[in-house]
């Protein structure tokens, strides 16, 4: 019981701190790249306050229930994704023997929730965003599942706790070099960023969130950032050894690695160009999927060697 409360407290702390930091990092990267001065540490709070001073609008004949559920659900799934991450040996909020599958379930629910977010407002631009996202959100899950399965092979378990333990001697990022890059692409897709932002992109004036104002907008942006935190924690656990590390306590190591992954995802999102959706669909099935097969084969051969 005590352990559960401790882990849960760490989860909340991790999530809030992570959301804030992700927002700051995002601001810093985008403004640096555009050749402007950096932003302040409190900027995310100010921006959120702006949304909260604005009226929350609805559209004509929207699906109000699903609009709410998509925002709240996205946040929940992000937090649940983070909850499977072990903060230390035997210190996970959701300690599950099949946590890799559980994370997969989170991934597929996110596609549903983002679709719902674009569907609910009954508006053309958000509807296009929603459908376009599904075209990419579904197939990009395949490579990500393959690399996670590859990460599970040396651990002989689908439990993230075991996967961390199996990286005691060597991190998966070295043992299976193709895994992390492929997984990062999934992160871009789950958090609606950069080259995989087919839902909320500029060519649709914000896509699924084009109709969001006030609290809805604040909620959606918070959920996106929460997803970034959750994803980064999972990635650092599966590929960078999670809480493993010398001298410092395990939790600190996990936080540091999460920040590194987070920064990488944000950096990639500002620097990679987005291609039209049909081209991306071909890329995923024809190139990324074969690469993930290769990763699996590699992982299998290494495990047998």
């Amino acid at each position: 019981m005590m352990i559960f409360v401790l882990a849960f407290g760490m989860l909340i702390l991790f999530l809030t701190f992570g959301i804030w930091f992700a927002a700051v990092l995002d601001g810093v990267f985008s403004r640096r790249l555009s050749g402007q001065s950096a932003v302040g540490l409190l900027a995310p709070f100010h921006a959120a306050a702006v949304y909260l001073t604005q009226q929350r609008l609805r559209t004509e004949a929207p699906d109000q229930l699903n609009w709410f559920l998509s925002i709240a659900g996205y946040l929940s799934v992000a937090a649940i994704g983070l909850a499977v991450v072990p903060f230390g040996p035997d210190l996970a909020v959701i300690g599950l023997d099949t946590s890799v599958v559980f994370w997969g379930a989170c991934e597929s629910l996110i596609v549903v929730l983002i679709f719902l977010h674009g569907w609910s407002p009954n508006a053309p631009l958000s509807l296009i965003g929603a459908y376009r996202y599904v075209a990419i959100g579904l197939p990009i899950m395949l490579p990500s599942m393959f690399v996670l399965i590859a990460a599970a092979i040396p651990a002989q378990s689908l439990d993230l706790r075991e996967i961390v333990a199996s990286q005691e001697t060597m991190w998966n990022v070295i043992r299976q070099p193709l895994g992390l890059p492929l997984f990062l692409l999934l992160g871009l897709s789950l958090t609606l960023r950069g080259p995989f932002d087919y839902a909320d992109s500029e060519d649709l004036a914000g896509g699924t969130s084009a109709e969001d104002s006030g609290a809805n907008r604040a909620g959606w942006q918070v959920a996106r950032l929460a997803m970034l935190v959750g994803f980064s924690a999972v990635a650092s656990t599966a590929f960078l050894g999670g809480y493993l590390g010398p001298v410092l306590p395990g939790f600190v190591w996990l936080v540091l690695k999460t920040l590194v992954v987070m920064a990488t995802v944000i950096w990639l999102s500002h620097l990679l160009a987005r291609m039209p959706v049909a081209r991306m669909l071909g890329l995923i099935w024809k190139i990324l999927l074969p690469i993930s097969f290769l990763d699996l084969l590699w992982a299998g051969l290494v495990a047998l060697a």
């Binding site: 379930a105 596609v111 549903v112």
Partner: peptide, 11 residues
């Protein structure tokens, strides 16, 4: 696995 598959399939 039920949750995983059903989410995708219902989508």
């Amino acid at each position: 696995a039920t949750v995983f598959m059903m989410a995708v399939e219902m989508m």
